[in-house]
């Protein structure tokens, strides 16, 4: 088991949009070091019952049988669970209408196997691969100008028109010991790419954060500082860090 020889370590950080309460956070993340699967999702703020949908998406991506980064058949289960939860509720007219429309979220999932990684993206949550302290691969977006406020989304009602096939993106690559992978929702990813384009070394900035004795405790303040001074857009922020230990070749993941 991986847990006995931890060649992979992962951490998650999150904070809510300034001006909202913590329970209004609508991103989600999930990870399982044993299966080597991780995901983040960003619930669309204009939809309702969104946090539950984002959470169902990441959890089901991580636990689904089969290649959840490849086929999307596993979506039937979270869609059913979401509907079971919300369809029984008695609601005012506006909440009823929003429920009918469904909830929407982006999804970024990655699955690691012995030497490779496979990623799935719908929308603008991003994966970055860092090697030797440098920003390598970025997926699915590569430039800060690629972000808008109408990303591709996965809908809880599963209407075919919601997610056209060209908005489902896949990528793959090899990982090496010592690699670090970052999964982020859009505000932080946009900041990362923009700072990188400006030659501002965001990777080092993030390394310093992760080297703190208790990075979780300072994460919200770290984000707020960058909202104030570096144009990090005010939004929910989620970061998942996956580190492959250097000089340890024993990682074996299922899936």
């Amino acid at each position: 088991m991986l847990t006995e020889i931890p060649s992979l370590r992962w951490y998650a950080f999150h904070t809510h949009k300034r001006g909202n309460t913590p329970d209004e956070y609508e991103d989600a993340f999930a990870g399982d070091a044993a299966t080597g699967r991780f995901a983040v999702a960003d619930g669309a703020s204009e939809s309702s019952f969104t946090a539950a949908w984002a959470k169902l998406l990441v959890e089901n991506f991580v636990t689904a049988k089969g290649r959840s980064w490849h086929d999307l058949d596993w979506l039937a289960s979270p869609r059913q669970l979401w509907a079971n939860d919300v369809d029984a509720q008695s609601l005012p007219w506006y909440a009823e209408e929003k429920r009918e429309q469904g909830a929407y979220a982006t999804l970024l999932g990655v699955a690691f196997s012995r030497r490779a990684w496979h990623a799935l993206a719908i929308g603008d949550s991003c994966l970055f691969r860092l090697r030797g302290g440098k920003l390598g691969k970025s997926f699915p977006l590569a430039h800060s100008s690629d972000f808008g406020n109408q990303p591709a989304l996965l809908g809880s009602r599963g209407r075919p028109a919601d997610t056209p096939s060209q908005s489902i993106r896949r990528a793959r690559g090899k990982w090496r010991p010592g690699d670090r992978f970052l999964l982020m929702t859009d505000a932080l990813a946009e900041w990362m790419l923009r700072r990188h384009e400006q030659g501002q070394r965001p990777v080092e900035d993030m390394d310093r954060l992760l080297a703190e004795p208790a990075p979780q405790e300072v994460f919200a303040a770290w984000v707020e500082e960058r909202r104030k001074n570096q144009g990090l857009r005010n939004d929910d922020v989620t970061l998942v860090v996956i580190d492959f230990m250097a000089n340890d070749l024993s990682f074996r993941a299922k899936g």
């Binding site: 960003d42 619930g43 669309a44 703020s45 204009e46 939809s47 209408e97 429309q101 929407y104 982006t106 406020n149 109408q150 990303p151 989304l153 939004d235």
Partner: peptide
């Protein structure tokens, strides 16, 4: 109008 991530639907 921008109040956050948009969903392409109106009534």
């Amino acid at each position: 109008l921008d109040i956050g991530t948009r969903v392409a639907q109106t009534i």
